[in-house]
Design a protein around this nucleic acid. Structure first.
Lengths: 128, 128, 128, 128
DNA sequence: TTTT
DNA sequence: TTTT
């Protein structure tokens, strides 16, 4: 079947790296993705918080160059990881990344936003 | 920023429809997305279960034509809905769909699978 | 930067395979992608014809299992190949595929279309 | 079927706007998308030049705010437009955009590149 | 637990 | 015809 997700967001913390028993690097890159959409008449904001999981050489590059606040594009597949903890069923959604790209560091003065043309595509959507 | 997800999966139940106070149709379309990927030497299978939320005329078309087992392509954005229930913090990931497409009904005899070439793209990935 | 294209279409001919000097298999998979969109009041149809270029083991699998009429999903990047021929500048757009998936063969009797809900997302678009 | 393309690139010229007989704004936004990929041992660069076609209010926003050199994300579908000119068959590939986003203006001094981790995903690909 |  |  097919499972593809593409996100652009900002790191909410520095990446964390660990290594599998077989020695593969695995980085966790926690990001926030801001969206705006129309809800009837007014614009809503919403933020998605999710971790990207990055492997191998890319994991090491992430740890080396990225830190809190940086903007990245992440491409991969969505998965829900499930486990038990003290008899509790736990679950977490993550993006298993096969591709991550770094956007230029933002200049402190450069407050012009990552601009977004009003998303007409969503104009019929979003009740709740 | 940017938040795009594209999934192909099978309905795990019939869609459910409801209407917002302002009369907009909202359908919940629960799907299962099967993936295969290499983990070191062996192939793993994994299934993502998630609801697509569809609005307006598309919601009505889904309810009318789709049922359990049907295959769909869903395109939209990922969001985490959060709420409180009896003092508990709850949360659920969903796909807010701006586009849904129906695949042909599978003939009962036609058991040939939605085929998938071994995803070389993931060959370096996936420790856990 | 970022260059991603995802198409679902039907093969217009059987795939063709060739091998690079270094022995890598390269398959050409020619597809037709049908779209419908609103133009003002009426629905338009349009078909995109393009070749997917597939490498390695996937190229061999394509040649082995696919033939004219089969439906595939292709994911990759778009590129324009340019060359000279008899003093003429030639060019061709292709999808360099990193992923190709096979849909089930359609049963002859099963004429129900790969259905498409009217794409509200394009409702404001498309003059020409 | 399904036809989706997502590109991030730089404007090679200022956008141009025109209006259809029915008064809909149509902007042409010409972009260059740089890619790097491995070809056997060495890294190759390649640039895709293509026009994004943007409609309605988004067309006007593009003309107002974008100019040569700016970076944008474009999402839409690929199409080949065909016509005759002086007995010659002409054709042009374009992206019919349903979504365009503006990236921040780059500071002149800020020469740090839109960074790209070596795309392991393409490591098996690209003979030619 | 949250970024801009 | 090309951007960084």
């Amino acid at each position: 079947m097919f499972n593809r997700i593409i996100l652009i967001g900002n790191l909410t913390r520095d990446p964390e790296i660990r290594y599998t028993p077989s020695g593969v690097a695995v980085a966790t890159v926690p990001i926030a993705v801001n969206s705006r959409y129309k809800q009837g008449e007014d614009m809503r904001e919403e933020t998605l918080f999710i971790d990207a999981i990055v492997f191998g050489k890319q994991a090491e590059t992430c740890t080396q160059y990225l830190n809190k606040g940086r903007t990245v594009l992440v491409e991969g597949r969505l998965r829900e990881r499930r486990w038990e903890y003290e008899g509790q069923r736990k679950s977490k959604f993550e993006v298993i990344a096969n591709n991550i790209r770094f956007f230029p560091k933002r200049e402190p003065a450069q407050s012009e936003e990552f601009n977004q043309v009003p998303p007409e595509e969503y104009s019929d959507l979003e009740p709740f």
